[in-house]
Design a protein around this nucleic acid. Sequence first.
DNA 1: TTGTATGCGTTATCAG
DNA 2: CTGATAACGCATACAA
Lengths: 325, 325
Amino acid sequence: MSTIKDVAKIAGVTVTTVSRVLNNRGYISESTRKKVYQAMEDLNYQPNEIARSLYRKKSNIIGLIIPTVAHPFFGELTNYIEYYAYENGYKILLCNSHLDKVKEKEYVDMLKSHKVDGIIMGSHTLEVEAYLNLDLPIVTFDRFISESIPFISSDNYEGGRLATDFLINKGCKKIAHICGNLKLNLLSNKRNEAFIVEANKRNIEHITVQTDIDVFESEQYEKLVHKLLREHDDIDGIFCSSDILAANVIKVSTQLGKSIPEEIKIIGYDDVWESSMIVPQLTTIQQPIEEMSRLAVELIIKQINGESISTKNFLPVTLIERQTT
Amino acid sequence: MSTIKDVAKIAGVTVTTVSRVLNNRGYISESTRKKVYQAMEDLNYQPNEIARSLYRKKSNIIGLIIPTVAHPFFGELTNYIEYYAYENGYKILLCNSHLDKVKEKEYVDMLKSHKVDGIIMGSHTLEVEAYLNLDLPIVTFDRFISESIPFISSDNYEGGRLATDFLINKGCKKIAHICGNLKLNLLSNKRNEAFIVEANKRNIEHITVQTDIDVFESEQYEKLVHKLLREHDDIDGIFCSSDILAANVIKVSTQLGKSIPEEIKIIGYDDVWESSMIVPQLTTIQQPIEEMSRLAVELIIKQINGESISTKNFLPVTLIERQTT
DNA sequence: TTGTATGCGTTATCAG
DNA sequence: CTGATAACGCATACAA
């Protein structure tokens, strides 16, 4: 690959001049500008971004840590994040933590070594302190770490409320909420809070099932759902904390011969693309995935530029009624 | 962030020495080694990978260009690719081309500027020449560009044969194949070749439907499938070139009141995670996504290391029978 | 309008 | 065993 020196030699000028035309800085005569352009063309020259990064102390790269891009929600999120990052001249270094504590830590260190300009965190297995000493612009999804670290989150309480109310209004008498591990201190726990409050308020029998099964372990999920439906044969409504989980519930319910939505109603969360594709189409709480992504990029870039931003960012959710309720 | 200089100063040695302990090169006394480690610890020092990359002319980054990570197939692929890359000390710079020719070209240039060590291409909208002058290790999925550029592909012909035969053996009398744009010169076109050959051999009426609708435009897909089933009410078997497409067909068939698999049998391609999750569970041709990913990383790294590799890499496919046939 | 010299953080060569 | 110093490719202050 040719360097700025080669261009300079061919164009018969010094590297300074080449650098100038490259960055449009200071005065340069039209004739030399042309010569330089010509030389760059001839050599098929492209500036070395590594060298630029070193000098400028800015890599134009954003690190993205998520559980796994194979999960539909994070796949969509990542797609949009990369899209908006690119629009703004940034690139994405992708890290799938698989919710492995050790790996997440290693990724953080790696990203720091690689001098990324900021980190978007969609995976949080580490202790609060680990994020505090990061000394780098950061945005998290769905987790409050400290007043100084901005987060983006859907309005989880409202989502939980909407889902629960909806099931009850549809006539459910005994409902369940299947969610992640509530100990993880995620903002999504608010969904369960709302679930309990609303069910109590309406005097409806309710059960909460926590799980930290990896979402791709469908057999385990199926077992869990089987168990739940066996032990509580009279459950007639389930609120799932993700669409993927809801798909599992649909599958098991069908296997058990329960008709949806007559005998059991199911409502998901996220509104990933699949939820309108499956049969029966899933009723769900829609998170504004694109807007969350756009905002994540915006917040990171503003931090990089030293602009002030709001730390608490709640985005609205919407109930999408389809065929499972 | 502290640099090697700071460490040197604190440890009371020169940068040379620090660099030595950092890279375990040459002799160093145990005592200075300790001092240096101590200083690194105190400063929480991490070597600057940008500077290293510049000097070594090696970034340890692999560029990945795909249509979009939001597509389940590419989501899974990307997950595995990142996994294996990381295992081998490489990082992934993610690019979603959205099959946009201009964007794909820009991404390629960007990756070259960023001095990635190699590119894995899962998106090919450019002309053959564009890839030939790349002057960088490269691996493509599902496209033969030239004898010098290695590709990875499932055994598409066999996949098409398996699917077609299976439908016919199950009693289908009139079958359709919905596939991508055959003009794109992808190896997946072999699936259609096999489809036609097998159908003719068995003397079965068959139709090929090409489309280059973006896979996320479900309404358009649905229209297409509606049209197909309206014009050919007697179709009783459909081979879809992706599971996502098959999911669309399931949805439309259900809407039209056709029972699956009694009145119409459906078979997909890929075996993404969703295919076993949907109801009814999808019969499909499984591509070995993890192995394809692992191999892609292996082939790129071997090229980077100057090792010789095979350019034509076909991986076996498997028919997975579930509920739609 | 253009050139010289210096530094970004690191590694390697060559002395000592 | 350790230290100066040059080089990686680029951009800027300062001269000319």
